[in-house]
Design a protein around this nucleic acid. Structure first.
Lengths: 248, 248
DNA sequence: CAATTTTCATTTGTCTGACATTTAATGTTT
DNA sequence: AAACATTAAATGTCAGACAAATGAAAATTG
């Protein structure tokens, strides 16, 4: 592990990269202990604060964990699905909000991916998944539910659908698309009629999965896509109108 | 922005979280300047090194960039697709390697997602995308191509397929699945016959997209999925046999 | 007056040295 | 043998300093 003294980049960034590469390449394995801060400082010929900054960078990426005390130090960390999920969702959400991705694009991506799971989910869904979906449908039908709670339930429903495919990699990749959409979905005002239509489609999807009919689930999802798109367009139009009004 | 002095967590982690939340919530907008390190230290009642560690954590997540000099400082950074891509791929790759995801699971996820793009790509692919795919097919047919280069080309081909859908969000989510598979794909030894079959399927996919026939593309992708799975199984079996041999 | 150079204040990058805190291992006592 | 105290090693935090970059203001020059 070496660093380039001529590089203009921060030393801490270079050191972090050096260690990160060692971890990613498999040169360092899970739970392996890194040298102590003092040793690293010596090795890279920098001071301890600089090493510490590098280690904090790695900690921010969940690549290492640190432990205080006698036999403490920095250890290569096993990246768990949950952490990867959280990271992925944060990044996806930021990407959408900072780059002003339009509703249509995000919606299309989300449902295209979800439909990819439908077939597998129809084959493998367990009674547990079906129960979760039914429960969320029931929740969505409750009167007086706020739009935000309705969206939460919607995400939970679709999450169950995706998890039904019983493929953690698929669930992981999908989580980003589904959850990152939520801020955009939250802009929509759901009338009772809107909700009825969505609940109807959700029921059809759940029925199709229960009957292990992948094609029917796909069709219902396609309809849900189209319907969500029209809702989104209306919401965006209303938003634009309100903005024009306030600027007048 | 406040921190909890009673918390057992590192101060730098708390400070980082506090600032991160402000950025994610939209409280701080892109290109906005954070207070200087000295001011932050004052504000949070900690020393400058601690603040710096917090800032390095944020820098590692591409949430801020720093600039030296008179009117320098830390600025909220616009997360670009490219950076998000890189981050996503790194995380996905680590997730697969550290959690020993089996070939079958990763392969299934990858192709399920890819098939989700096929329909859209058939509709929207440009001559550019087609040209890229044809070029990669041509490259794959070249004699003497190493297995690794063959895989590279394979990824490039599928990337073009995905990009053909012209949905950056879709491309972003897919990139993780496709690229993270590469280390697993690299374990496979591709015989000439293997390559011929794959190239044939690639050609069928390209033809289908050119004809804007989504269904045909989907069928060819399904066949490619099945074929890749058998190749993977063989490779894993060979690997297991070699291991048993060496342990005997 | 305009253009160029110099100076200067600000801010991040890095270093030194110190102390606090946590924790496991070791030693001591009962 | 078990409970307790000691110690050493490691990270966490701090204070203060200097280096380096950089933009803006001031001084100089043509």
């Amino acid at each position: 592990m070496k660093i380039d003294p001529k590089s203009s980049a921060d030393l801490s960034a270079q050191i972090a990269k050096s260690i990160r590469d060692a971890i990613i390449s498999g040169e360092m394995i899970v739970d392996e202990r890194l040298p102590s801060e003092a040793e690293l400082a010596d090795q890279f010929q920098v001071s301890r604060p600089t090493v510490r900054e590098a280690l904090k960078r790695l900690a921010a990426q969940n690549l290492i964990r640190t432990q205080r005390g006698a036999s403490g130090g920095a250890f290569v960390r096993r990246l768990s699905y949950d952490e990867a999920f959280a990271q992925h969702i944060t990044t996806s959400t930021l990407l959408l909000s900072m780059n002003a991705v339009d509703f249509e694009t995000a919606c299309e991506a989300r449902f295209a991916l979800e439909r990819a799971c439908a077939r597998l989910s129809a084959k493998r869904r367990t009674p547990d998944h079906l129960a979760t979906m039914r429960a969320e449908i029931h929740r969505q039908a409750q009167p007086g539910l706020s739009d935000e709670r309705f969206c939460d339930s919607d995400v939970a429903f679709h999450r169950a659908l995706v998890d039904g495919a019983s493929n953690p990699v698929l669930s992981y990749q999908l989580a980003g698309a589904v959850e990152a959409m939520q801020p955009l979905m939250n802009m929509i005002t759901f009338t009772q009629r809107n909700r009825d239509v969505i609940i109807g489609l959700h029921t059809r999807i759940a029925d199709a999965l229960e009957a292990q009919d992948g094609a029917a689930a796909d069709t219902a999802l396609a309809e849900l896509t189209a319907y969500t798109l029209t809702l989104g367009e209306e919401a965006m139009a209303a938003r634009a109108a309100a903005k024009a009004q306030s600027e007048r």
